[in-house]
């Protein structure tokens, strides 16, 4: 018994989709001279994606019947959300303010101890503050990297 969605098949589908997007993007309404290399690349990707699919769907992924590694959405989503909000607000609110909250949020969400453990809370806060100070001294003071300050900092 094998499941229809083996890891190989999913990989093949992934590759086909990327290949298709690239083919459309580089051939549809573009100038052949400007898009020469993208076109060659897209064609090669499409061919290889087809070979991968042929392998995966004819003889069942040539023995690779591994199921796709599970993505633990429940664990992952809060982190991805923090990342998305961080990137969105980074330039507008300011690098250091955003980084402070993002760092603290990740520590809070993914720490092993309970969210409401006051000792852990204090530790996480201290680590966050220290990291931010190190970051500021290193990038702003020593390396002269002027990150966007946004409306806060």
């Amino acid at each position: 018994m094998k499941t229809f969605i083996s890891r190989e098949r999913l990989a093949a589908i992934y590759a086909l989709v990327v290949g298709l997007i690239l083919l459309v993007a580089s051939f549809y309404g573009t100038d052949p001279e400007v898009y020469l290399f993208p076109r060659i690349t897209a064609a090669f990707i499409a061919v290889l994606a087809l070979i991968l699919s042929y392998d995966a769907f004819t003889h069942g992924g040539a023995g690779d019947k591994q199921e796709p590694a599970l993505v633990e959405w429940k664990v992952l989503l809060p982190g991805l959300a923090v990342g998305a909000i961080y990137v969105l607000l980074l330039e507008r609110v300011g690098f250091y303010t955003c980084s402070f909250f993002a760092f603290f949020a990740i520590c809070m969400i993914y720490g092993k101890r309970s969210l409401f453990d006051p000792q852990a809370f204090a530790l996480k806060l201290v680590v966050t503050v220290v990291t931010m100070i190190v970051l500021y001294v290193l990038f702003w003071k020593l390396l002269n990297v002027r990150t966007p300050t946004g409306i806060l900092f």
Binding site: L90, I106, T131
Partner: peptide
């Protein structure tokens, strides 16, 4: 370093 501090540090350093 515990995983969550490590993740947070790499996260911020990656952005900077």
């Amino acid at each position: 370093i515990p995983g969550h501090y490590m993740a947070a540090t790499i996260f911020i350093l990656a952005a900077f």
